[in-house]
């Protein structure tokens, strides 16, 4: 049994291919997060402004993403963009779009919460110093908010990484899709390959996500003290 694991992993370039698949999952997570955090910060700031209709629209946006499962979001983008808008992007771009919109919704709520929990005296002191609205956000509210929101943001990142497991559903060659190919190719010779390959992928996800969640927990504990 032990031999079969080693064989399956190192026959040809199987291990390298799995790592390549993992890389696909990682860069899609990083790109989605980067785009989502930028858009989410903007939406979050807009949600602290007094305009009622604006708040309402942004709230609807957030609630939509709260209700629709991520796998469904992925299919919405995957089917609707090409068929209704005639846009034919590579599947990886569509995944990034779907994930980024979702991250932006979640992050806008984190940003809003963080900005609102910066003590009022900070805002008043800034205004008393003659800061403009933009300066107030740039130098007073956002730096403090970033610190408050860091644990929740890292948590969101771990969720995005876990969600990349869905990429194979829109035929992206991610770590799971490549794992499946390897299993199918070796099924005859090594029937236990499925156990070891999926086991390996399970552990790979854990190795990426666990340090991040530990970090987020530590930061949150520090804040509560």
């Amino acid at each position: 049994m032990e031999h079969s694991v080693i064989n399956v992993l190192f026959v040809g370039n199987n291990f390298a291919r799995i790592m390549q698949g993992l890389w696909t999952s990682v860069w899609i997570s990083v790109d989605s997060l980067a785009a989502g955090l930028v858009l989410g910060t903007l939406l979050g700031i807009l949600r602290t402004l007094p305009s009622k209709p604006l708040r309402f629209i942004l709230r609807l946006y957030l609630e939509f993403f709260r209700i629709v499962p991520t796998i469904v979001l992925l299919y919405l983008v995957y089917y609707i963009l090409p068929r209704s808008f005639n846009i034919s992007w590579p599947a990886s771009w569509m995944a990034i779009l779907a994930f980024a919109l979702w991250v932006a919704a979640e992050f806008s709520d984190i940003v809003r919460g963080a900005i609102e929990s910066v003590p009022v005296t900070q805002k008043e002191s800034g205004l008393a110093l003659g800061l403009s609205k933009t300066q107030l956000f740039r130098y007073v509210l956002l730096p403090q908010a970033v610190q408050l929101e860091l644990p929740a943001t890292i948590n969101l990142a771990t969720r995005v990484i876990k969600t990349t497991s869905l990429l194979m559903m829109i035929s992206i060659m991610d770590v799971i899709a490549i794992g499946q190919q390897i299993i199918e190719a070796n099924n005859q010779k090594y029937p236990t390959a499925v156990f070891w390959i999926y086991g390996l992928i399970f552990i790979l996800y854990f190795i990426i996500d666990y340090p991040l969640s530990l970090w987020s927990k530590k930061l949150a504990a520090k804040e509560n003290r």
Partner: peptide, 23 residues
């Protein structure tokens, strides 16, 4: 708790559905 929280449900399901029959 740490294992379950830090891995995707999809791979957990694949493991249960496809890998467990092997053992």
């Amino acid at each position: 708790v740490e294992l379950a929280r830090n891995t995707p449900l999809l791979i957990q399901l694949f493991f249960l559905y496809y890998a467990f029959p092997v053992i």
